[in-house]
């Protein structure tokens, strides 16, 4: 079976790139590592038979959002001279400890439950057609509401972008 290989491969890639993203000094480097991380995520999604979402992940996150990020970083033109110490002294240590402890706690909590295996799936699971059907039938109202949300976001960012209100 290929699944463990995919899981450990892409899972490991995601963890490593995420760690790199968090620790880089230069925001551009962080952004690029995050793009890689999102590719790994997309691969994991596809491993979970979520083909449509995997594609959307690449298109939207890696393609659109991260481009926006890099664009802003470029726009703000944060040169090397403005780079400062990466973290705050005290909270860096405390934050690290807390994060590790959080991971341990969640893992322990999950391991207390019995292991749940995946069942075989029906044909066509995770394709565009069934997900799209759900979107336009059962989840029509939330789907339409997201369009309102996007409109609000557009108006909001336009307002933000204006120099003077």
């Amino acid at each position: 079976m290929m699944e463990p290989i995919f899981f450990y491969g892409f899972g490991g890639l995601a963890v490593v790139t995420a760690l790199l993203m968090v620790t880089r000094v230069n925001p551009i480097a962080s952004a690029v590592w995050l793009v890689v991380c999102f590719f790994a995520f997309a691969a994991l999604f596809i491993t979970l038979e979520a083909h449509f979402i995997g594609v959307i992940q690449v298109l939207l996150y890696a393609g659109a959002i991260m481009v926006l990020f890099i664009f802003v970083i470029m726009l703000l033109n944060i040169g090397a001279e403005e780079l400062k110490a990466r973290t705050m002294q005290f909270s860096g240590l405390l934050g690290g400890l807390v994060t590790i402890y959080l991971i341990v706690l969640i893992t322990l909590g999950l391991l207390k439950n019995p292991v749940r295996f995946f069942e075989p799936l029906t044909e066509g699971y995770g394709y565009v057609a069934p997900v799209g059907r759900l979107l336009f039938t059962k989840y029509l109202v939330p789907f339409e509401l997201t369009s309102v949300l996007l409109l609000v976001a557009i108006v909001g960012s336009v307002v933000m972008g204006k120099r003077k209100l």
Binding site: V22, P27, F69, I73, R86, T87, G96, T99, I100
Partner: peptide, 15 residues
């Protein structure tokens, strides 16, 4: 949790 770590620890708002 890596995300949490980044949020809590980093000073750069973009990161």
């Amino acid at each position: 949790c890596i995300g949490v770590f980044g949020v809590v620890v980093r000073r750069n708002i973009l990161i």
